[in-house]
């Protein structure tokens, strides 16, 4: 019997091959391109370097509880991962101004933000991966409300972890891109690659560029620097102790069919105080639960169980969930 392997996807730098219903093989190629394919090259050893960086970073993220598609390394340039349906929206997290952000808003490069910024982009080569607002991504059906909340919180959590990890090896994480995919049972997890092609890393001491900007700016020795990142990541003996805290807010509202005495009395008080434009007041509950774990699909399920079983009585109440990771 000949096993026919299906090539699921062939990208600019990677091929994805379906192994079975559950697993895929991701092959990191040596091709590199920039400026929407205007500049294209083959760099020997680049595939292996990015494969190694991805493997190491996925393992680190898994260690901290982030749900990723990574299963194991198959060969020097191949990873075995869970099969997911990649969503057409990618997230970018920025700690310091650089790249398209500077061009888009006309700001100076290298200015740190007080708090990291998360942006969403629509993955579409023809349209040059445009920036999208959450509202557009949801309304156009690319992601749902829940996925939007998970993407933002997971991106911030990944940033929080990777900033600390890179700090340990003398590198500054400027920004990075993440892709997410839906597993066969509909859970959103981190997918694709996290490599020197998908992030900006600067030397803490000299500011020297270590990432794909070396290629974009023709700085040379791209693969050497990629290999150096992988080497330094491999040298980490003990991962930093990071206190992870996800705040989950469950907002509970009374169904409209249920009497809301407190809301009614408040409504009448507002009218009495002269706020004639008020037409109704509903008083619900807001419960904030802090978890010592990272946000993600698993935490969402836990929160739903807690909400269904304890926090809300489905007979009279509805609830909504929000994550924040700061």
């Amino acid at each position: 019997m000949v096993l026919v392997l299906e090539k699921l996807y062939s990208g600019k730098a990677k091929d994805v091959i379906t192994l079975d219903d559950e697993k895929v093989k991701i092959v990191f190629r040596n091709s590199i391109s920039a400026f929407d394919g205007v500049k294209v090259d083959e760099l020997k050893g680049k595939g292996e370097a990015n494969c190694k960086i991805s493997k190491l970073l996925f393992e680190i993220l898994n260690h901290y509880g982030i749900e990723t598609h990574y299963l194991k390394q198959e060969s020097k340039n191949e990873l075995i991962c869970k099969k997911v349906e990649i969503i057409p929206v990618e997230s970018v997290c920025r700690n310091i101004t650089a790249g398209s952000f500077c061009r888009r808003y006309g700001v100076e490069k290298g200015v740190p933000f007080k708090k990291p910024i998360v942006e969403l982009f629509y993955k579409n080569d023809e349209l040059h991966d445009p920036l999208v607002t959450e509202e557009v991504a949801i309304r156009l059906g690319w992601i749902n409300e829940k996925e939007n909340i998970i993407i933002k919180a997971v991106t911030l959590a990944v940033n929080y972890i990777l900033v600390e990890v890179f700090k340990k090896i003398g590198l500054i994480l400027v920004d990075f891109k993440l892709e997410f995919g839906r597993t066969t049972d509909g859970k959103l997890i981190l997918a694709d690659e996290i490599s020197a092609d998908t992030m900006r890393l600067w030397e803490e001491n000299s500011g020297e560029i270590k990432d794909k900007d070396r290629y974009r700016k023709d700085l040379g020795s791209v693969v050497d620097h990629y290999n150096d990142i992988a080497f330094r990541l491999e040298q980490i003996k003990e991962l930093p102790k990071i206190e992870l805290k996800t705040k989950v807010r469950v907002t509970i509202d009374l169904k409209s069919s249920v009497l809301d005495p407190a809301g009614d009395i408040t409504f009448r008080s507002l009218l009495r105080l002269g706020y004639k434009q008020v037409s109704k007041v509903n008083i619900g509950k807001s419960i904030v639960i802090s978890f010592t774990s990272v946000p993600g699909s698993k935490l969402w399920d836990v929160t739903e169980t807690i909400s269904n079983e304890i926090l809300a009585n489905p007979l009279i109440e509805t609830y909504s969930i929000d994550f924040s990771f700061e």
């Binding site: 249920v258 009497l259 005495p261 407190a262 009395i265 009585n313 007979l315 009279i316």
Partner: peptide, 10 residues
């Protein structure tokens, strides 16, 4: 079945 909610008088 059902649930006991806040008195109408609060």
């Amino acid at each position: 079945p059902g649930v006991l909610t806040t008195n109408r008088s609060t």
